[in-house]
Structure formats: C-alpha cells, structure tokens
Computed example of a mutant assay.
Amino acid sequence: MIAVATLTSIHTSPSKPAAAPVPRSTLDRLRLAGPTMVLVALVLLVALAEPNFLSMNALAVVSAQAVPILLLALGQMFVIIAGGIDLSVAALASLATVVLAVTIGQLGALAVVATLVALTLIGAITGLLIVFGQIPSFVVSLGALGFWGAVALVISGSTTIYISEGYNAIFWLSSWTFIGLPLAVWAGVVAVAAIYLGMKFSSRGNVFHLVGLGEKAAIMSGIRARQVRVAAFALSGFFAGAAGVVLSSQQQSAAPQLADSLLLPAIAAVLVGGCAITGGIGGAWRVLIGALIVTVLRVGGSVAGIDPSFQQIVYGGVVIVAVILTLDRSRLSIIK
C-alpha cells in the first residue's frame, strides 16, 4: 500500500532504532483503555434505546458510515502525530469525488488510481509549503481548504455530478459484502492493520512519533524531519482521496461539498481515540476506535431520537474533552 511504502521510504540513521513511546503510568494505561470503554458504553446505551441497533443490518450501516470518517482520520493521524494539523482533508475528499466523477467515464478503474495520485501530490504540496515556507500548518491547511474547495466548485460547475458511466469500477466497494459487511469496511480494516504493522515492526515506522515529540532531537538522531512532515501531509492527501472514492461509491455521485461536514468528525475521531494534539502519541487502532465512537454518536443519536442539530455541539464537546485528556502540558510553556 502507498501508506506503508511511504513509511519505509524515509531514512533514519543506521544506528539503533528508537523505540516508540510506551505508557508508563496508570493514567496512561487508563487513557489507552478509555476510548474502548466509551465505545462499549455508547453501544450499550443506544442498544437499550433501540435493541435492533445490534442487528447485523444496523451494524453494517454503522460500519459503512464509519469508513469515510476512518479514512480521513487516518490521514489526519499522521499529521497530528508529527505535530501539525490538516484542516483541508474534508475539502480534499470532496475534490476527490469530483475528480473521480469527471474521469471515471473515460478511464474506468484507472480513474481511482489517478485520483489517489493527484490527492497525494496535493497533500505533498501542502507539506512542502509548510516545511520550506516555515508557515504554521493551521494557516496553510486553512488556505488549502478554501483553495481546493473552490477548485472543486469550478470543476463540477457548482453542482452535483451523478456517476453512471464507469460506476462499475467502484460500486463493488459499497455493494459487495463479506460476512455481512461492505468491502469498503474491510478495506478500512486492512488499512488500519497495515499502518499498525508498518509503525510497530519497521525500524522507520516511528519517525512520525519522534518528529512530533521533538523535531530538533529527531534531526540530531539522523531523521530527515522535513521529509517526514511532507510525507505526513502526502499520506493525509492519499487517505482523503480514498475517502472520496468510498463516498462516491456509496452515493453514486460527486459534489464539491460532499465531504465538508466530515472535517470535525474526522478530527474528533483522532483525538477521542487517544492521539495527543501536541504530537508524538497515537496509532491506527486508536483512530479506528475513535472513528467508531464518532459514528455511533452520529447514527446512534438519530436512532435514539436525538435531534441531529445537536450533533455539532456533541462533536465540539468531544474534541474539547479529548484535548483536555490528551494534552501534554509539560511540552507547552505557554497556552495561547
């Protein structure tokens, strides 16, 4: 996979590989177990309100809706672990749906590859602007959000594009199932497993954590920190493209704002899963749990009869609480 290939392409010093940070205190262990406990509690609460929530059909719907959030969150995870943030991921996913829709009729399955490559390059450009322009990632990605959102509007003519010709190249992601779950769900699980294995067993897999924990120390250890940060944004672009492909498969359409509502849920998934906003701490399995929590809040809230207008309030509260719990205040001399 592109994600694993990118991980292994970043060189560190040939000396003893640094170990990934491990929890040493009871509080750290509670933070690791906390998201899973929250997920179980949420599922039980929703199941009490609506017992059919635990049926196979309901679980298939929940897992399918979790996939775009999971993919966006996986890309965001690399950036946050490396000490930055990418506010453009949802706009890039929307752009990906549009690029796919206008090319799939002529290119077929190759349109998927072209979309993923294009979005990866766009993410890399954002990373290059940040590391060589020495501009905060918040500012550059915020500008990228507006820029690429406008590009998607121009390409689509500010309208929804329905995919008919060439749809066979992507329909299987949402239509074919294995053990009752769409193949897109299994693709997401495979992505999580691949990232986990790449980070845990590759000698270069923890470079994102090391850069996020201390860029100067990482550079002194022989890590090419600039390349790592560019790679993080490239991976963010790649997974935004993948999320766009899944959305197009599920909706059989594309729109310049199709994924825009997923920005806050994706960030919430990363943080509520236990990844530290200060960088250096996090992993793919944590993001998977976070994505499931956010999706259960979205779907389960509707099933339980909660007004959808309160969802953004819930997400905002979830993000604030997650930041409070994961913030490493020892690394911040000033809070501003």
Rank of each mutant, 00 (worst) to 15 (best):
G84N: 06
S94R: 00
V89Q: 04
R224F: 07
I277K: 07
A5F: 07
Q312F: 04
G127E: 12
A19Y: 12
K200N: 10
I163A: 09
L39V: 09
A217L: 15
L327Q: 03
I334E: 10
I135H: 01
S302P: 01
D328Y: 07
L235S: 03
A184I: 10
A114E: 10
L32D: 11
A191F: 08
L95D: 08
T115V: 10
R229V: 15
T159S: 14
A231G: 07
I223H: 03
L72E: 01
A184K: 00
G317N: 03
A41G: 13
P182R: 03
T160C: 09
D260Y: 10
A101F: 06
G143Q: 09
T159D: 10
G212L: 11
L27F: 09
L44H: 11
A184Y: 04
A49S: 15
S13T: 09
G305M: 11
A150H: 07
A268S: 05
V62I: 15
S253M: 12
A73V: 14
T126G: 04
V131L: 09
F147W: 03
I104R: 00
Y196M: 12
I125G: 08
V131Y: 00
L7V: 11
R31H: 04
A33V: 15
G180Q: 07
L110A: 14
Q251N: 07
V117E: 10
W186F: 13
Y167K: 04
G300A: 12
I155R: 02
V190E: 08
S333M: 03
A291K: 01
G212W: 02
A66M: 13
P35H: 04
R29A: 11
G317L: 09
K216Y: 12
G317M: 02
V22F: 04
G75L: 12
E165H: 05
L235N: 00
I324Q: 07
A93G: 14
G146I: 13
G222K: 06
F78W: 11
V46W: 00
P136L: 09
N206F: 14
A109Y: 10
V207T: 10
L110M: 13
V79Q: 05
V190T: 14
T36Q: 09
L129H: 08
I195K: 01
G241T: 15
G241Q: 11
A304T: 15
L297K: 02
L59S: 03
A234M: 11
A217I: 15
L128P: 06
L332R: 04
R226L: 08
Q76T: 14
V299D: 09
G198L: 11
D260N: 13
A187I: 14
A191K: 03
V319M: 02
I155S: 03
S221A: 12
S94T: 04
